[in-house]
Nucleic acid binder design. Structure first.
Length: 271
DNA sequence: ATGGGCACCTGGCTGC
DNA sequence: TGCAGCCAGGTGCCCA
C-alpha cells in the first residue's frame, strides 16, 4: 500500500477527472472489505455531484452533495479512472460510475481497503478524529515529536509509524526517513535528542515530498490513477536492500524485524 | 496510557 | 510438478 505519497498521487490523478461530475451508479460487486461496505450506498450516491477529492492521512475523502466517501487503499488497493465499460479484472470490487462515461474503479486483492460514507464533519469521523498531524503541513514539528515521545520506550521506527503521532509514514518511508536522519530504528523514542528530532522531521518531509514527485513507490501491485507505477523505488536508500552496499558508505544494509514488519538500516550511517 | 501480538485477506516466491 | 511456508505499501482491537 499505499503510504502517504501513493495516496496523494492517487488523489492528484483522479481529482480532475471526477470533480464536477454526477454519480450515475455505484456498482458494488464485493462489499467484504476491511469493514463491510454499506449496501445502501448503491442507492444513496446516485445523483450526487463530486465537489472535491481531499486527503487526510492515508484516507481519500471524496466530497459529494450530502456527505463524503472515506476511502482507504489498505495494503494492496488502487483507485483508477477508466471508461465505465472497461473489462473487469479479478478483485475489481466497486465502480463509482459518472455521467462523463468514466468510472472510478477500486481494485484490491487483499481486501484490507475500506469505504465509509460520512454525513456530518468528516474530520470528526471515528477513523479520523484521533490522527496525528499531517507531515507536510505546519503541525509537525521536532518539538511536538519530542514531547509526544517523552518517557516512551517504543522503538523510534514504530513510534513514527503510529498514525496517532504523525500520519502517513508507513513501513517504507519510516526506514527511509531514519536513514536520511542518521538515526537507528531500534532506539527508544524517549531517548532521541532534539537535534535528531529536527533531522527526523526534515527527513520525513524530504522523503515524502520526493516520493510524491516521483509518483510514489511501486514494489508489487501499486499503480497510479492512470495505471502507471510509481518511480520512487529507484531512489530508496535502504528499503528491501538487505546485504546490498549502502549508497553512502558501501557497508552492507542490515535487515531486522520490528512489530512483525521488516526494517532496513545502515549500521554505519545510522547511530 | 503503553506496548506487544493477532487478525483480517490474496498472491507470489522459495525450497523441499 | 506440487505444496507448505513465508512474506508483502495497514491498522483496529484485545490483552497484559
Amino acid at each position: 500500500m499505499p503510504e502517504l505519497p501513493e495516496v496523494e498521487t492517487t488523489r492528484r490523478g483522479v481529482r480532475e477527472a471526477i470533480v464536477g461530475h454526477a454519480v450515475t451508479a455505484f456498482d458494488l460487486r464485493e462489499p467484504r472489505l476491511r469493514w463491510p461496505v454499506e449496501s445502501r450506498l448503491v442507492r444513496e450516491l446516485v445523483g450526487q455531484h463530486i465537489h472535491d477529492v481531499r486527503r487526510r492521512a492515508k484516507y481519500l475523502l471524496i466530497d459529494l452533495d450530502r456527505g463524503s466517501l472515506i476511502a482507504h487503499l489498505g495494503m494492496s488497493g488502487s483507485l483508477r479512472v477508466m471508461p465505465s465499460g472497461s473489462p473487469r479484472l479479478l478483485h475489481d470490487h466497486y465502480d463509482l460510475v459518472l455521467d462523463s462515461g468514466q468510472c472510478l474503479r477500486f481494485n484490491d486483492p487483499r481486501r484490507f481497503g475500506s469505504l465509509h460514507w460520512c454525513t456530518g464533519p468528516v474530520e470528526e469521523h471515528p477513523l479520523l478524529v484521533k490522527l496525528g498531524p499531517e507531515p507536510l503541513e505546519d503541525g509537525l514539528t521536532a518539538e511536538l515529536l519530542a514531547s509526544r515521545a517523552r518517557r516512551r520506550k517504543a522503538a523510534v521506527k514504530l513510534f513514527l509509524m503510529d498514525q496517532h503521532v504523525v500520519v502517513g509514514v508507513g513501513n517504507i518511508y519510516a526506514s527511509e526517513a531514519l536513514f536520511r536522519a542518521g538515526v537507528r530504528p531500534r532506539r527508544a523514542a524517549g531517548r532521541i535528542k532534539p537535534t535528531e528530532w529536527q533531522r527526523i522531521v526534515e527527513s520525513i518531509r524530504q522523503v515524502l515530498g520526493e516520493a510524491i514527485h516521483q509518483g510514489g513507490t511501486t514494489l508489487r501491485d501499486y499503480v497510479n490513477a492512470d495505471g502507471t507505477p510509481g518511480y520512487f523505488r529507484q531512489k530508496l536508500f535502504v528499503y528491501e536492500r538487505a546485504g546490498e552496499p549502502c549508497r553512502r558508505c558501501r557497508t552492507p544494509i542490515r535487515h531486522l524485524v520490528q512489530g512483525q514488519r521488516s526494517t532496513y538500516f545502515c549500521p554505519v550511517c545510522q547511530q
